[in-house]
Every structure is written in structure tokens, then in C-alpha cells.
Design a binder for these strands. Sequence first.
DNA 1: GTCTATAGTTCGATAGAC
DNA 2: GTCTATCGAACTATAGAC
Lengths: 204, 204
Amino acid sequence: MNAAKDTTEDKILEAATQVFVQKGMEGARMQEIADAAGINKALLHYYFRSKDKLFDAIFSKIVSFAFPKIGQILQAELPFVDKVEQAIDTYLDLLLKHPYLPGFILKEVNRDPSVFFKLVMKHGFKLEPIFQVMQEAMDRGELIRMKPEHLVVNVVGLCVFPFAAKPVISFVAFNEDPEATQAFFEERREEVKQFVIRAIQPIN
Amino acid sequence: MNAAKDTTEDKILEAATQVFVQKGMEGARMQEIADAAGINKALLHYYFRSKDKLFDAIFSKIVSFAFPKIGQILQAELPFVDKVEQAIDTYLDLLLKHPYLPGFILKEVNRDPSVFFKLVMKHGFKLEPIFQVMQEAMDRGELIRMKPEHLVVNVVGLCVFPFAAKPVISFVAFNEDPEATQAFFEERREEVKQFVIRAIQPIN
DNA sequence: GTCTATAGTTCGATAGAC
DNA sequence: GTCTATCGAACTATAGAC
């Protein structure tokens, strides 16, 4: 996620990202970030005035990274089912590479929604184009009739939830075996696609 | 959730539950809990030796409340589809009454999984009986063939995820209109049931 | 059991030398 | 720009009177 140049500012951003994502805003310590960056606390405050400002910089970077424009996939000239498969693939790729993102983002959004809201407005994320693609697919009979909001929440939930609940799943279902857990998460790529497709395909 | 007797200990437990669930272990302040209980900080330490111990008491209560034995529903003599509907109904009832639980539990489980693990072992939650019911339904042809782990994760995710992501959904999809958001969450009872049933019913 | 007062720590932030 | 040293606020925990 980080193009790691060697300037001090970049080292700080990289270290802060790692610590904030793992511990959250409240759990992270400026000292730990300084250690991870190989510098001292005073220098953190020299580059970013406060812990809040440093966190905002990292959170902004992560949100714009994790909310990419799936819209583009959905605009392509493909059967709707194929678009859904591509969207799920794209998201699960990203999540398998960055499994901590769901837990981190959900935690911070519940702690202080306003920070997230400002970012959404700044970047102009909109659901309407996605809803419209779904509506057209329904009109063409490629998709069962349902509220687009529910379909989006269902698909995102099926992709994202297991990562947010990873410790629970690993312990309860796989006795904390890391390999079995990892295999399960990789299986979900096919599992989620097939589950969603069965749920949304009209019966001929 | 609390049988509110009037003893000081009960007032503490009630106040601590409210503050911990809303702010989390790291965000909660002993002073705030004391204020909410109408007492002072010293008395918190008199009843519970430390913030950690107080938190453990609350977390234990909440986990055993939120992980009820759905096993019983699944053991009943009903078609598998009906069992699934009942299980979803039961869980969404609980979540609609206690919408903060998913965010709280996910946050704390990611912060310190070991506390949760001890509780699971103490209460002896097991998935095997649920898996077995699913396996039998597959053998009878009432359920499409799939790994039981995925079905459980899918159903739980569809129920739980929207609550953990409520601020995001409310803002992005409903412009923070509380009534529209509430209506959406109530619709999910039927939505989730139909979505799951379509996804798991064998094609005749 | 309940209170006031305060000790003891942790941590974000800043002063000031180099 | 980078460091050491330290301040000051916030917070958990305890001492001791009633």
C-alpha cells in the first residue's frame, strides 16, 4: 500500500499506518510509532502537529485505498452476473492482501463517524450509479427484483464480515489452526460468488 | 438485558455495561462509569478491583447473552429451511434490540482475542452439532451441498455486518436519515431470509 | 459501604541544545 | 531536521476519614 521512499516523512507514514491499523487510534502510542519509524517522539510532532492530525492522514489514505471505484467494473458491457463476480474478485483480492482493514475501519467509524463522513464527501463516493446499473439489470430480467441497497449490503457483508470476525472464526471453527483458517478465507472467493449468484438469479 | 435491582453492585454493572458497550474498553473512563452509576470512582474499585476485572465481568455477561444456543432451534423437527428462518428471526430480534453489540464485540475480540477465547471454552460453545444438522439436511436433499462453515459465516455475516457498519450505511445510502435507516434495518429480516433461502435451496 | 483527597503512571506535547 | 529532557494533563488506583 505504501510506496516506501526513504524520507523521514515516508518512514513515519509507513510506521504510523502499521501501528494505527493494528492498534486503532486509541490503542496506538506515539512512542511505538516513533520506534517503528526508527526516530523519536519529538520528530513525529515536528512533521505532524498532533496524534490526531497524524491519524487523519493515515485514515484518509486507507479509506481512499479501500473504497476504490468498483463503479467502473459495474459500468462495463458485461452480463450483470459477470460484473458481480468481477466486483467480488476485486474486493476479496484487496481484503486477502490487507486483512486488517475491515476491523480497523469498522472500529474507527464507530468511534468517530464524522471523520469518515468528511472523507466520503471529499472524495464524492456515490452509490446511485451502482443502484442504476442494478435497476437496469432487473429491468432486463438478469437479476431478481430487490432493493439495490440490500444487494450491496449483502455482497459487502459476505466479503467483509469474515475478516472483521477472523479471530472468532479461527478459534471457534478451526481451533486456531492458521493453515485451515487461511484455506477457508481463500475458499471464500468461489463460495461468495456462487452464493450470491444463486441468490440473485431469476428462476427461468 | 439487565435485571436492574437497586443494589450498588447492580447499578455499577448497569452503568458499566452502557459505557463499555458504547466506548469500548479503551475509550471507557472509570469516572464516566461512576457518574452514570451515581457514585464515585473509589467505590468502583471497592466492588471490582480494577478496570480490567470490571470489564471482564461485563464482557462475559454480554458474550453469553449474544451467543445463545441457536443449537436448540436447529435440533427441532422442522424442514431445514424453516429452521434457518427461525434462527435468522431469533438473531435479528436480538440485534434490533441491541444494535451496538456487533461493533462492541468485534472491536474487543480484535483488541484481545484471549479474553473471548476463555469465555468460549468456559461456556463450551460448539459448532459441531450445527454442522451435523446441516450435513443431514444435505443428505436428505433439503440443502445444496456446501461446507457448513461457509453457510454459518454467510448467515451470521448477513445478519451482523449491517449493524457493525451502521454509521457507514446510514450516511452513504440514506443521507443519515434515521427513519429511512431504521426502516432498512427492519426490512432485513425478510430480505436476509429470502436471500439465504434462494442461495441454499437445491434446484429441483 | 461510601466518601474526599491524592499518590503513581502513562502519554501527548513542547522547550531548547546541536 | 533531529535529539534529550521534561512539562502537564488525564486517568487508574489507593489511603484514610467517617
